[in-house]
Every structure is written in structure tokens, then in C-alpha cells.
Design a protein around this nucleic acid. Sequence first.
DNA 1: CCTGGCATG
DNA 2: CATGGCAGG
Lengths: 310, 310
Amino acid sequence: MKRGRKAEEATAEGDNDATAESTPKKEKKTKEPEAPVLYEDPPDKTTSKDGRDANMKITSWNVDGLRAWVKKNGLDWLREESPDVLCLQETKCAEKNLPAEITSMPEYPHKYWCTADDKGYSGVAMLCKTEPVKVTYGIGKEEHDKEGRVITAEFPTFYLVTAYVPNAGKGLVRLDYRKTWDEDFRNYLSELDVQKPLVLCGDLNVAHREIDLKNPKGNKKNAGFTPEEREGFDKLLEAGFVDSFRELYPDTANAYTFWTYMMNSRSKNVGWRLDYFVLSSSLVPGLCDSKIRNKAMGSDHCPITLHVAV
Amino acid sequence: MKRGRKAEEATAEGDNDATAESTPKKEKKTKEPEAPVLYEDPPDKTTSKDGRDANMKITSWNVDGLRAWVKKNGLDWLREESPDVLCLQETKCAEKNLPAEITSMPEYPHKYWCTADDKGYSGVAMLCKTEPVKVTYGIGKEEHDKEGRVITAEFPTFYLVTAYVPNAGKGLVRLDYRKTWDEDFRNYLSELDVQKPLVLCGDLNVAHREIDLKNPKGNKKNAGFTPEEREGFDKLLEAGFVDSFRELYPDTANAYTFWTYMMNSRSKNVGWRLDYFVLSSSLVPGLCDSKIRNKAMGSDHCPITLHVAV
DNA sequence: CCTGGCATG
DNA sequence: CATGGCAGG
């Protein structure tokens, strides 16, 4: 009776939280179930510091399987939120298998799908109320563009890029690839940025700083919080981009966008901030708000929403 | 974008029904949705022809995944039916993964599990209120005994054998193996039968005669109704065994124990009789009733129950 | 602990 | 159209 995988083996992302949480103090016999420290997203601001009204509302959501997300009434939430553009990551759905509820959605007449070559992993999408000037797929490098990770929409005044950045994997088996990706992707963005300012959104698969995850100590060797990945994010910002949430809320802790399904992490708010709106510096004056919709259910990630004047 | 399997390809068992049902008459433009011909199982008889009261109630059910079946409240049905012995087929569950609800069930203190070597396919089980004299697994032939298909319980006056007979497979890819099985299994039963009479129950994966499935014409080349499989059943009966249901109800049609999940077969009663209680001839005088519990849900098979004086 | 795809039925 | 196991997260 062979069995591939032991139930006791948690995933890299999964047991991180456990690692840091369960470090047993010898003195304590019973582990106190600590009250969760929650995060309450403040009301939306739709005016920028320089006094302009937001004219663009963008939502990004790693849905972890589009079909399951639709079944869990993701579209109801979408209609309520009603952004101008919706960006999705991890659709995990070939185009021919897309649910009719979403392909026929009249609120978003302009829909773009980018799926992985083979299996139905990853996959990103963009749904727009108004038609972009131009839409492209991938970042122009063969080795990266087979996995359905990037859509770029050109609008009159800016580029919108949505990305599902490769996970470094259990045991960091794909960290080397990730480093290559980070460099190539950064170069791609920099090339765009010289033409028009851009908004990058999506699951960047990294918690930038210690404040961006519940258990930084236990996760320094785990996918999403290695020095290499964090440095990749540093370099992105150094290239002239800004983490919009952190720009507005430099000291706000416990604000996460991802919680592993394991160990009731979400109810304990043991999470990570992996989803971002990253803006070209020149767009920062128009930044109105960067929201974390952490009450929205339907995935192991929650959606995030940007209000911006562009 | 490769995809392994076309949605249009029905399974061997599945599209059989379609084959026979959908043969289009050119004259008809619209297919009449025929009213389903149902089968109403009559009330249980618990007295045998020779006037004895049943002292043994046995239920057999191909549960198509024990864990899913438990979630669908199979155990509630079991407590209601409350047979002396419950035989299960297609448990698809390694022993370590058995739900506690069933392993801890006090009504059945004697439980026996036989699972496939590798994957978690097939698998049979027997739950007994009273302890058998002896329990054995398999039929004593290496080539057959790795798939978790047979449990034999010796009781004071008879053997009870439960079996999940190998499916001949899509495209009959395993029909040759099935023929070997049928012969070896028949020999196994005959050897038992010289010691004590036996009751064989389970999913024998064959509809014996045309009356035993809805669409005999379309299924002569499909798993479960090939001449070879039917002949295997013929030879079993010739070896001194009796199909208890057919013995009592020689002309009852539309009595099925399996309906493919596809094409709403169950609601249309487009089914097969694949599950049997087969008795040594010497037990036939004690036969009280052979029931088809076709209202019980939770699997693509329904349970069957035997009342017998042994 | 969830997803989608797979093999099997 | 169900099941369980699998890889990925």
C-alpha cells in the first residue's frame, strides 16, 4: 500500500504558519488559542491628495479556480463592486470551459483570457467595461509566456498589467526560475514605463516586508518570503514603482490578501499580503485609495481594489 | 492546448444507453421523451416456501466511494435497514482513511476491509453483527488478489462471499482478464460449495439476460453485456448456483441495481441489474426474498437485500 | 485544505 | 456525471 504523500506533510506555504505559531515554549503546557488580530479596511477614498476625483476603479483577485469561484457567487460580488476593470489570476480554466455566466456578462463586454499551454494551471484574465486601445499577452519571452501569467491592456493614459507571478514552490524548487522571471518581468515593465505610466496588479507571490505577513520569522526560507523574492520586489520599486497600499498605509499591520486554506488560517487572520497594485511613480499623485476587500470570500485570496485618477 | 479526453466521448457503460435510446427514426423529427417505466419493489417476504422464517438478513451495496457515500448519509440508511451483515463494494478507501463514523459503529462490531494494493480503486468490506467463524480475503490466486475484490466469511451453516467483479472496461480492454477471472472465481466458489453452501453477493458486473437491462440491443458489445460475460454467468449457474432474484421473479422487468450517472439514467430508469445474491442450490428452499432497494440513494448502484433461512 | 485534471467506471 | 488520488498552491 503505497501512498504518495503523507497527510502530515504540510505544504511549504502551509506549515510556515504552523512553524512560527507552534514553536512550543516548554513552560506552557496548553497552547493558548490567541484571539485573532483582525484588520478592518477603512472606507474608500475616491479623491487623490492633489484633489482629483478617481476616474478609474480596478479590482484584482486571485480566484484560485474560476469555475469554483463562480459557483461560490464571485460574480455577485463583482456586480456589487462594479470596477471598471477586473483582473483575475489563477483562473485554471481553458477558454472552452469558461462558465457562460461570465463569458456572457453584459457589464463587461471586453474580455481577455490568457491560459497556460498545457494543464489548466495558472491563467489570468481581464474584464473591461470600456475597450482598451490594445491588449497583449505575456512579456515577450518564450520561456515565460507558456504559463498564462500576464495580460497588458493599453488605455489612453496608462498601461494596466495584470500578473500571476510564479510561485517559488515547495522546497523552493522553482526559486531559480523565479529569479529569472523577476528580472525579465521588471525589464518588461520598465520598457512599458518609458512609454506610458503603468498600473501593475495581481498576485506577485511575495510578501515584501515583515509587516506583510503574520509570521515573518518562520517563513524566511519559504516560498513568498525568501530574501531573493523580497529583493526582487525591492528592485521593482527601485526601478521607479510604488506599492500603493504601503504608500498610503505605511504602518498598517495585519493587512493580508492571502490565507492558506489549512489550519483555519483565515479565521485566525494568519495571512500574507501577496496581491498588490504597483504604480509608476508618476501616477502616485492621482492615487486615491488601495483597498483590501478581506470580507469577500470565494478563494484563498481576497480581492483588492484601486481608486485612481489617471 | 491539449486536453486528454473529449467531453463528447461517453464511457462504454455510459453511452450504451444512449446508443440504444437515440437510434433516430428518420420519420420522427422530435424525440418523444418517453415516460419512464419504473419498478416498484414489493413488500419483503420473510418466510420461505418451505415455511421457515428468515434468520439472516444480508445487504449488499456498491457504494462507489465509501467516503462520499458516508457523506451522503449512507449510514442512516444502513441503520434503518439494519441487516445482520452488510457487504460493500467499491469502497475506494485505504483503511487509514476510513471515516470514524463507520469504523466506530457499535451496531457492527465485526468489520473486515479488503483494499486494492496500490491506488484506492475497488475495495470491498463486510460488516457483521455477529462474529464469523473465519474470514479470508481474495480467492487464493496472486494475479487476482491485489485488487481488493473478495471477502469470504464463514458462518456456522454457510459461507458468505462478497465480490466486486472486474469491469471489462471501455472498449473491452479488460475482457480477456475478466474471462480468466470468471473461470477462476467460479472454481473458487465450487470448492467452497463442496464444504458448505454459500451465498455470493455483490457487483458481478454483468447483466445476465436481456430482461436485466433497459437496452440490451445496444449493449451487446459493451462491458457488462457481452456474450462472454453473460456466458460466464451461465456457467456459474450451471455449477450449481441460483440467481435468487430471478428465481423468485422470473419475468419481472425494469428491475435494475445500477444506473450510470450520465444522461439522467436513473430518473428515466435506464439501468442494469448488476448486483446479485447468488445461492447454492441447497439454500434455495430457505430463500425468503431478494429485494432491490432502488429508492436508496448515495451511489450509482442501489443496495439489494436478501432474507434467507440458513 | 482547496483547486483542476486524470483514470476509472 | 460521479468517485478517489494526484500535483500544485
